[in-house]
Nucleic acid binder design. Structure first.
Lengths: 122, 122
DNA sequence: TAATTGTTATACTTATGATATAACAACTAT
DNA sequence: ATAGTTGTTATATCATAAGTATAACAATTA
């Protein structure tokens, strides 16, 4: 699992890290039941503080992407709640779609991008 | 144009304001060429500081949604750059789609939500 | 026993969001 | 001409969040 942090980004490090773990799980680079690097190991690898990685792991656990097994560390364990996931997706998407409509993007163009991303990410 | 700010939200006030202006423009509650309330008037209306509204207006101007006419104040003027808008949409969408894939959302389900939002917002 | 796991606690620095005045040039209305 | 309003800029202050730095804990592993 490769990690690339942009320290000049306006996005928080733990958010960048979380997003890349999203991608890794989606693309099966990280598979269900697989262990993630320890917070200390990953922090050392990407050159940030342990707590920054721990924050990413904690939010991922809280949002149902990881579980902590005392003997195996942080393990990929995706909790599926379709209705909740659909509701969250819609809430996250609303301002983005509104922005796109303002900029003249058609429904078909946006759905084309969704197609592209599904191809790239699964 | 109605504005609703949630002061307990984790989203910054100027971001909430910006998102609602996105929606207002998309739904033609705010039409091309139409003037927005002055920063002071809107700040007073929703009970926040002038600079908070100014920050929302500034980012909207910088992102090509408003222009400033000295005699008419902030005016809706959407700058259309299809390629740039598509690229930004894709960049914003990537982590969301990755998250959705992890949670088992199908391509069709996500595109269904896009359809719903286009119906609601245009 | 020694080392590693996630986690928690405390403390510090830095960056950002929000507020508070104040002022400026450009424009509008009286 | 005067007074008021426009977006904008400049400072300053406060609160919160992000990130760093040590340290410690119970549970597990080698």
């Amino acid at each position: 699992m490769l990690v690339e942090i942009d320290f000049n980004s306006d996005e928080a490090i733990y958010i960048q890290l979380r997003n890349q773990i999203f991608v890794a799980i989606a693309t099966s680079q990280l598979k269900e039941g697989e262990s993630l690097p320890s917070v200390r190991a990953l922090a050392d690898k990407i050159g940030v503080n342990m707590h920054t990685v721990n924050k990413a792991y904690s939010t991922l656990r809280q949002d149902g992407f990881l579980k902590v097994d005392r003997r195996r560390g942080a393990v990929v364990a995706v909790d599926i709640d379709k209705l909740d996931s659909m509701a969250k997706m819609k809430a996250y998407l609303r301002p983005l779609i509104a922005r796109g409509i303002c900029k003249g993007l058609s429904k078909e163009e946006v759905k084309g991008i969704v197609d592209q991303l599904y191809d790239e990410l699964s």
